[in-house]
Design a protein around this nucleic acid. Structure first.
Length: 654
DNA sequence: CAAGCGGTTGTACGC
DNA sequence: AGCGTACAACCGCTT
């Protein structure tokens, strides 16, 4: 019997240690092993990926390739620039492949892609072997053990996990690797369609991803940022298994830190060094295995003399949350990433809702500007010029470094959605997708739903203040001074609310609080004064409006799969005089989808049924008035006032 | 099965 | 200064 000729297809498992799939490939005792990466146009053109995450990916690929070569000088990571869906049939033939092995992916797109590849392999007579390895538990098994329901709480994960059994111990990295065969490519490249190219904004030069199958030097090398036409990365955080494992070693070496870590007690204002591990991008790209992380921590905890922290706040608890979000995504598929058609996601008529393709029931990537003011809020939030230094510092750190502390993510997410701007969480998730180096679709989506109180979490009256919250962590405002240098000389008394500083002091401290942040640089007579914008909204007022809106939406009680949400008749349930920016039957805001009478197919035939939403409340009772002393009587009026100047848009866009 | 409790990460205020 | 409590009120989970 001829010996196997194997392709090992690397994806988000860019490592050699603890790779169940790689071990499986090696256990085949192959005659030759081709470690490859296929250049997926989904990543190049369709997912939102900023330069910092690109850089991290290239780092991981370079490091992995070098590690492979150390084990076998004839081998490396072979990058082939074509979509896997068109490339594989040609590779199977050219290299006389018998087996294709890769790590299982439960992302919505990942499943579609892999199903297609499996089909092609079957046609070619190639055996496909996949192994779970991206999470502590196989996400599909976790869902099964959770009565076939998406995992929506940590206790569900813990119970379901206990049924499955122990989390697997990590597998050591291989000591040797078989050689690849001769990696010839005597076939034509099929260039993928680049339209639409939503990553065009990430580039400042021509994009040459697909100029040649094996790259410009015909050597299968990892591309450079320049080759991809990308703007330079600005992040100090770098990728690769070597760096990732070193970081893990350093964490584990500090036994007190490892064993007593409590996430809610780590400071979101800490920098140099940050308060958390920075391992999240390594979790995403697979440059550090989550099970390696889990067991290294667990082994320290087991022999720790003092009082160790427990899930969910402990380090291992963080990994359980990750598995929870993966489980939710595995069960819900594409619907997990949107409100529309999502049985687990509360329907809130946010501003700037996603446009829906009623044929597929999926969001299109565009959104509707139902409210001019909300659009301005969103832009200023994204660009870090809200006029709230805490929010702006975080957003600038996010854009520049690709990472912010988890609690910082809470602060900006709450501010954009239920605790300030009342903008759709999907808008915020898209910005995070673009800028985070650790962007993990499942975790990002899940956390945005959590923070916006549309799923996982419901205490919408707990609202982060952009002033009081950072005060708790950083009284002197050093974090703000670093990322909002305009304010570096401000007294700590005003660092989180600089608009309250007397004009004379503003001048003394070298920065005037004025404008909306678009008149960037210096200003005024002598040109020595910088400017920083005035706050774009009255936070206490806006918070009350948002809470009223949330309360109202909760009383209506719709979820994303409710027929009234699917067909647009949800409007009838939101009275015109409802408190908060919820809008009613007459107003255009909050439009998500046209009332096409015949869009019943949007309901889709897919799963979903095993995850019935809680039945909507039909409660009649009107929200009680806030009894907050002194304030709180302005709700109705204030709510209306925020809608002044609203742009009325009527029908669906062109 | 109704009620009560707790929920990784709120705020403002009083002692 | 640091802790406890009210605020207004959500959910899931346990008993």
């Amino acid at each position: 019997m001829p010996k196997p000729r194997v392709i090992y297809w690397f994806r988000t498992d860019l490592r050699l240690h603890d790779s169940p799939a790689l071990k499986t490939a090696l256990d085949l005792k192959p005659e030759c092993l081709y470690p490859i990466w296929t250049w997926d146009p989904h990543y190049v053109y369709h997912a939102r990926v900023g330069p910092n995450r690109w850089q991290f990916l290239l780092d991981c690929q370079n490091d992995l390739s070098e590690s492979i070569t150390k084990l076998n000088p004839q081998s490396k990571l072979f990058l082939i620039r074509e979509a896997p869906q068109t490339l594989f049939p040609k590779l199977f033939k050219e290299w006389k492949i018998t087996h294709l092995v890769f790590e299982k992916d439960t992302d919505a797109y990942g499943r579609d892609r892999d199903d297609k590849v499996k089909e092609l392999a079957k046609e070619a007579g190639v055996e496909v072997i996949t192994r779970p390895g991206r999470t502590l538990y196989d996400s599909d098994e976790l869902v099964k053990a959770n009565n076939n329901r998406p995992t929506m709480s940590i206790s569900q994960v813990q119970h379901a996990g206990a049924k499955i059994g122990d989390i697997a111990r990590p597998i050591p990295a291989p000591k040797s690797l078989p050689s690849p065969g001769t990696p010839t490519l005597s076939f034509n490249q099929q260039k993928p369609a680049s339209n639409p190219d939503i990553n065009a904004i990430q580039r400042d030069a021509e994009e040459k991803s697909y100029d040649a199958l094996a790259g410009p030097n015909n050597d299968f090398a990892v591309p450079t940022m320049e080759e991809l036409g990308l703007k330079p990365a600005t992040t100090p955080h770098r990728g690769g298994e070597t760096i990732g494992l070193k970081m893990l070693d350093e964490i584990i070496a500090n036994e007190d830190y490892t064993a007593t870590f409590e996430k809610p007690k780590t400071a979101p204002t800490a920098f140099e060094p940050q308060a958390t591990t920075l391992l999240s991008p390594h979790m995403h790209f697979g440059s550090v295995s989550c099970r390696e992380f889990y067991w290294r921590v667990q082994d320290v905890v087991s022999k720790y003399k003092g009082k160790a922290s427990q899930p969910p706040t402990s380090l291992t608890g963080q990994l359980l949350f990750r598995d929870m979000y993966f489980g939710a995504q595995a069960a819900l598929g594409y619907a997990f990433g949107q409100s529309y058609n999502n049985p687990q996601c509360r329907f809130i008529p946010w501003h700037l809702p996603s446009e829906i393709d009623t044929k597929s029931g999926l969001i299109t990537g565009k959104y509707l500007v139902d409210d001019a003011k909300a659009e301005v809020f969103f832009k200023r939030w994204k660009e870090g010029r809200t006029g709230f230094p805490w929010i702006d510092a975080l957003m600038r750190q996010l854009k520049h470094e690709g990472w912010i502390h988890h609690l910082g993510r809470h602060a900006v997410a709450c501010f954009l959605t239920r605790g300030g701007c009342y903008v759709d969480w999907e808008r915020g998730a898209e910005v995070f997708e673009e800028w985070l180096i650790d962007h993990e679709a499942a975790c990002n989506i899940g956390n945005w739903q959590w923070l916006s109180c549309t799923a996982f979490f419901a205490q919408f009256y707990r609202c982060y203040s952009p002033i009081a919250f950072p005060q708790k962590w950083d009284k002197d405002g050093n974090f703000v001074r670093k990322y909002v240098p305009e304010l570096e000389h401000f007294d700590k008394k005003y660092i989180y609310e600089p608009w309250k500083a007397p004009i004379l002091d503003q001048k003394k401290w070298g920065c005037l609080i004025k404008g909306d942040g678009t008149d960037t640089d210096t200003d005024t007579e002598d040109g020595t004064l910088r400017t920083y914008p005035k706050p774009m909204l009255d936070f206490p007022k806006q918070r009350d409006i948002c809470i009223q809106g949330m309360k109202n939406a909760y009383h209506v009680g719709l979820y994303g799969k409710n027929p009234k949400v699917l067909d647009g008749t949800w409007r009838k349930l939101f009275e015109d005089n409802a408190e908060g920016p919820t809008e009613g039957t007459e107003g255009p805001p909050g439009a998500m989808v046209e009332h096409e009478a015949d869009n019943a197919d949007a309901d889709g035939a897919e799963d979903g049924e095993h995850a019935a939403p809680p039945s909507p409340k039909v409660e009649k009772k009107t929200p009680k008035k806030t009894t907050e002393k002194g304030k709180g009587a302005h709700k109705r009026k204030a709510s209306q006032s925020t809608l002044d100047g609203m742009v009325t848009r009527k029908k669906k866009k062109d």
